[in-house]
Simulated assay, not measured.
Amino acid sequence: MNVIIYLRVSSEQQANRELSIPAQREALERFAADKGWTIVDEYIDEAKSAKTADRPEFQRMIAAAQQSDKNFQAILIHKFDRFSRSREDHIVYKALLKKQDVSVLSASEPTEPDTPHGLLLEGMLEVISEFYNMNLKHETIKGMKENAIQGFHCGGRAPYGYRLHRSGSRVTYVLGPDEEIQTVKLIFQWAAEGTGGKKLARMLNELEASRGSERRWSPSTVLSLLGNHAYLGYRTWNKKSEVNGCKNDPNEWIMAKNCHAPIISEQLWQAAHEVLSTRKILKPK
């Protein structure tokens, strides 16, 4: 039988030698040789999560399986979670492949897909894989929530005017260059005086040019900075949903105060946002 092999490793797993691409390839080649199968091609997705089927080589492999002149009868993988960690994707893509007379076989989790017991075992392995993925995500979010409550950094870049500082396993913000700090104060001061986003961006670009800097400000960047509570010394997390990326209700935000040195005062923040709120009300839709 001719087979193709599919190899995948996520960015989090790349340091794991047992799951590395060479280790997977060696295991699949050895398994195929023992069975007397011929490997005719391979598809590799590196640093790709199996939470979604939106993987370039995975999709190219599925497309190849749908060709009438394909020269293979099965896809060989190391474990079923290399194929996908989504039960739904397992069902959809395996059903599609079955119509093309292509089987999905695992070297380390061998099953007999054409028997009731084999089908049951394969389904159980897929469910366990999805459970592991969902549970890991839940535990990660729980850890990030606790991290945020204590006022520590939960990923991403530091806001303009700050830099990241690591102490052991914890990351906090420290003040950045004085030039950036003064710029942040100017932005809030100008906003409190009634300057709109477009004019603010223009004034900032003129300021940057006078400094010989190539940095360019846009109105959206300025307004995003004005809405960042980090400048008050707060640490805010969960503004956006981890599931769909949509903005969460402010009541769901986790906000810790006095986490790092503030750049502006509460009074200046309030003054700037009172003006911004007024401009939003007066601006025609």
Rank of each mutant, 00 (worst) to 15 (best):
R60E: 13
C246F: 12
Q59D: 10
I75W: 00
R17W: 04
S241P: 08
L268S: 03
G233M: 08
A74H: 09
K240C: 14
W237V: 01
T52C: 08
R170P: 00
K51T: 15
S220M: 15
A148M: 07
V40S: 05
S241N: 01
E130M: 10
S213R: 11
E266Y: 02
E146A: 15
V184F: 00
T172L: 05
N71D: 12
R215G: 02
K185W: 00
I75T: 03
C154Y: 06
S10G: 08
E139M: 15
V9N: 10
S213P: 13
E26T: 03
M61P: 06
L204Y: 00
S49A: 03
K198H: 09
Y6N: 05
N133S: 15
K142Y: 08
L97I: 13
H153T: 12
D89V: 02
R170M: 00
K240Y: 14
L19C: 09
Q270I: 11
N238K: 14
A256R: 10
G156S: 03
E193I: 14
G155A: 02
I281P: 01
T38D: 11
S277K: 11
G212H: 02
T221A: 10
G233Y: 05
P250I: 05
G194A: 07
F131N: 07
V171C: 09
A23F: 09
L136I: 04
E88K: 08
I75M: 00
L121C: 11
L268I: 01
S20F: 04
K79R: 12
L226N: 00
I149S: 08
L164K: 09
M1G: 09
K285N: 01
L225C: 15
F31A: 00
S241R: 06
K240R: 14
Q67W: 11
E208C: 02
L186N: 08
Y231L: 14
L226H: 03
G197S: 09
T278N: 06
I75S: 01
N205I: 02
K198F: 11
R170D: 00
V102W: 00
S129W: 00
S224P: 08
K94G: 05
E206A: 10
V171Y: 02
H117V: 15
Y234F: 13
C259I: 06
S169D: 09
V243H: 08
D54F: 10
H90T: 07
K79M: 03
F80P: 12
G156H: 01
T140M: 07
S49K: 04
K145W: 02
N205D: 04
E180G: 08
V3Y: 07
R215C: 13
W190E: 06
W37A: 15
K283M: 10
L96D: 07
M61V: 12
E146Y: 09
N244K: 12
R202D: 06
H273S: 05
E26C: 01
L7D: 07
I5C: 04
S129Q: 00
G155H: 01
R87C: 10
R25E: 04
N251A: 14
R55C: 11
S169W: 01
N147C: 14
R8D: 14
E252T: 06
Y43I: 09
N71C: 13
Q66K: 13
S167P: 06
E122Y: 05
V275P: 01
E29I: 02
R170G: 01
P56E: 08
T236V: 15
L282C: 06
E130L: 04
G196S: 13
V275G: 04
Q182W: 02
M203R: 12
P250F: 02
D178L: 13
Y160H: 10
P250N: 03
Y162K: 03
S224Y: 14
I181R: 05
S84K: 03
